[in-house]
Amino acid sequence: MRVGLDELYPPRRLATARRAAAAAGLDALLLSPGSDLRYLTGYDAHPGERLTLLVLPTEAEPTLIVPSLERPAAEASPAPATGVRIVDHSDGTDPYPLVVAALGQPVGAVGLADRMWAEQVLALRAALPEATQRLATEVLSELRVRKSPPEVTALAEAGAAIDAVHRRMGEWLRPGRTEAQVATDIAAAIRATGHARVDFVIVAAGPNGASPHHGTSDRPIGVGEPVVVDIGGTMPSGYRSDCTRTYVAGGRASAEFLDHYAVLHAAQRAGVAAVRPGVRAETVDATTRSVIAAAGLGDAFLHRTGHGIGLDGHEEPYVVAGNSRALEPGMAFSIEPGIYLAGRHGARIEDIVVCTTDGVRRLNTTSTELITL
């Protein structure tokens, strides 16, 4: 059953964020369109040159400043139910005095959305010359890193939707078709399974599979070639999917590739099995990496083991060497080791998992065995 937006975006998040901002020494959070704004209000705001800004003071009511022409969208979103006051500004007027008014009093430090446009950062600096600017992620990352049960449900819905696309791969992926042709079919299927937006489609055949972020090309897929398919999108809830499987098109792969895939499969399974509360993120990375290194392929594993996922496709926690953070229940992230040999082939297996109170739950449930189509 699909989780409701009122469960995903509860009003208490604003109060929690205000307390956390105050504890961090901030007088307010100033959030432009993006995942932080959506996390707190449910409003999937359009980013543009017209100012949209959530003003969340620690000592005054929250205000959502929007362009007049976007006020209907803001009012139709979950934002009003969270208790924010909506104020609009017309084209040709300066919206920054509205920010000063919404703050209610002089401020000494504000937290800005991490991906706020530079022109807005500078305009806020001019409007609030006495305020120190810091990153809102200092506060919000800690709130977002542990997913609530409704958020896990939303991520599971996203995982099931992208799994349904992978199950149909035999309809599109065959020798003679180009990577781009297959990707076009996949993108249509991502939308058809309930995603609101296609975020990325990687179809990387043969030697192109050795580039982790290849994308697609007009190169035809060869008989027996390995094909890395990494796909993801955003659901109407705002939560993301991301899943990679490796296929063999229309024939038998080389013995060398089959050996490499067996190593990769063992590494990915070991990484998933290592997830439990209290285990450090870097330990999970080391677990997958050690399996690949033991096979003499350590240099072919080019990236971290995983990244967090939620309203952003990449967010905390990052499963990477040097991240000593202990995993906690509710943390959601990918386990996606890869083996990439330039000019030859590549392979990756990716599942989204959630750390539970006693272990791990895979949100992608399709087989991780090598699939021959």
Rank of each mutant, 00 (worst) to 15 (best):
1 M>F: 11
3 V>M: 08
5 L>E: 14
6 D>V: 14
7 E>L: 15
7 E>C: 11
7 E>V: 11
8 L>P: 10
11 P>N: 01
14 L>Q: 03
16 T>L: 15
18 R>V: 12
21 A>H: 01
21 A>M: 01
26 L>C: 07
31 L>A: 05
35 S>F: 10
36 D>E: 14
37 L>M: 06
37 L>W: 07
38 R>M: 14
38 R>N: 05
41 T>G: 06
42 G>K: 06
47 P>T: 11
49 E>Y: 14
51 L>Q: 10
53 L>A: 00
62 P>V: 12
63 T>L: 08
66 V>I: 13
71 R>E: 15
73 A>L: 14
74 A>P: 11
75 E>Y: 02
75 E>D: 12
78 P>W: 14
79 A>C: 09
82 T>A: 07
85 R>T: 15
87 V>E: 07
87 V>S: 00
90 S>L: 15
95 P>Q: 05
98 L>R: 04
102 A>D: 04
102 A>L: 10
104 G>V: 06
109 A>L: 00
111 G>W: 05
113 A>S: 15
118 A>R: 14
118 A>G: 00
125 R>P: 00
131 A>F: 07
135 L>Y: 02
136 A>T: 08
136 A>Q: 06
137 T>M: 04
142 E>D: 13
145 V>P: 02
151 E>F: 10
152 V>F: 12
155 L>D: 01
155 L>G: 01
156 A>L: 05
156 A>Y: 00
159 G>R: 07
163 D>K: 02
163 D>Y: 02
164 A>P: 03
165 V>G: 11
166 H>W: 03
168 R>W: 09
168 R>I: 10
172 W>T: 08
172 W>E: 05
178 T>R: 11
179 E>N: 03
181 Q>W: 08
185 D>T: 06
187 A>P: 09
188 A>I: 08
192 A>H: 03
192 A>P: 03
195 H>A: 10
197 R>E: 15
197 R>Q: 14
201 V>I: 05
211 S>H: 09
212 P>C: 10
213 H>G: 00
214 H>D: 04
215 G>H: 10
215 G>F: 11
218 D>W: 05
219 R>Q: 15
225 E>R: 04
232 G>K: 02
233 G>M: 09
237 S>I: 05
250 G>P: 02
251 G>M: 02
252 R>K: 08
257 F>G: 05
258 L>R: 14
263 V>A: 01
267 A>W: 06
268 Q>K: 05
270 A>K: 08
271 G>T: 12
274 A>I: 03
280 R>I: 13
283 T>S: 15
285 D>C: 07
287 T>Q: 10
290 S>A: 15
293 A>K: 11
294 A>G: 12
299 D>C: 00
300 A>G: 01
301 F>A: 12
307 H>K: 09
308 G>Q: 08
312 D>V: 04
313 G>F: 02
317 P>Y: 06
317 P>W: 04
323 N>M: 08
326 A>R: 15
331 M>E: 13
332 A>M: 11
335 I>N: 04
336 E>V: 09
339 I>L: 12
341 L>E: 09
343 G>Q: 09
351 D>L: 06
351 D>C: 11
356 T>A: 02
362 R>F: 06
370 L>R: 04
